[in-house]
Design a protein around this nucleic acid. Sequence first.
DNA 1: GGAGAATGATTGAGTAGTCAAGTAACTGAT
DNA 2: ATCAGTTACTTGACTACTCAATCATTCTCC
Lengths: 154, 154
Amino acid sequence: MSSQVTDLRGIELEAWINFLRAHAAVTRQFNAELLATHELTINDFDVLAQLSRAPEQALKRVDLAESVLLTPSGITRLLKGLEDAGWVSNRPCAEDARVTYAVLTPAGKKKLEQARKTHVASVRALFSERFEHDELETLASLLERLPQRDTSCD
Amino acid sequence: MSSQVTDLRGIELEAWINFLRAHAAVTRQFNAELLATHELTINDFDVLAQLSRAPEQALKRVDLAESVLLTPSGITRLLKGLEDAGWVSNRPCAEDARVTYAVLTPAGKKKLEQARKTHVASVRALFSERFEHDELETLASLLERLPQRDTSCD
DNA sequence: GGAGAATGATTGAGTAGTCAAGTAACTGAT
DNA sequence: ATCAGTTACTTGACTACTCAATCATTCTCC
């Protein structure tokens, strides 16, 4: 008599499973699109986007790692690809010889602008097709309360 | 004057970025836990759980692939690991010689019960620490409206 | 009842990451 | 001034997948 059909495993598990499935389905779609039209992965795009909003389009590898939630070695390897493609270059740091900044090149900036056109449109389309504006605000603010950074060293 | 600080890139992008970061952070944590205490990945766990709720604890590989959103070859390789560990065995299908069912062994059933104790507790803890019951219902139902299956062949 | 298409599953080759170990450079207490 | 610890980054070995090709079997239907 109560309400709708609900998951027997508890609401937390239901939310988690929906979350997992949605991530798999949505990233698969976005990655395929991005790869087909721009030869970039979501993480490539994400890193370029982070660089573009950074002062002087440059970021230390550690900071990049933290902001896109990859390990330092993951960032090293990802940047290798972007360097080979010419979207990113390296700049040594005058004050600290350990750090090499990753810098967005002009070509990289251009590449990002192109990719943004289609990718941002896809993201907007997927979300706004399914949700009203106020629902998107709710969703964004709920998701924001989940861990958004690596918790393994807290 | 309007409201809170809001993301300049639009609410859809904000929701998407929060979603991506949350997935990376949360799966990293759960995977580490599950691997440390049970030597299972989230996908391993997920496959065992799917099998346990299936009639006769058996499922075709294609169905398994669809329900956990892996490719058929991903399922083949994942099952190989579970077979080697003894949690899953193969059963040929009488009606169709192409299919081999993956079936949960008694040991696998036991393994899953153990893993469930800690993993389900972690999931519940993470979500109920952060959200009220009605917020969880909202979150679950919003996430449910995102694609939950592979859209590449629609 | 046989040819062709579709389906279930596996395999080889490749990719995108992880972790642990290592190197180099910096920091801070004595 | 030094040396123990920390930080930035890279590397080798591995894992967990993906995709495309392949093989076997079953379905379609003329």
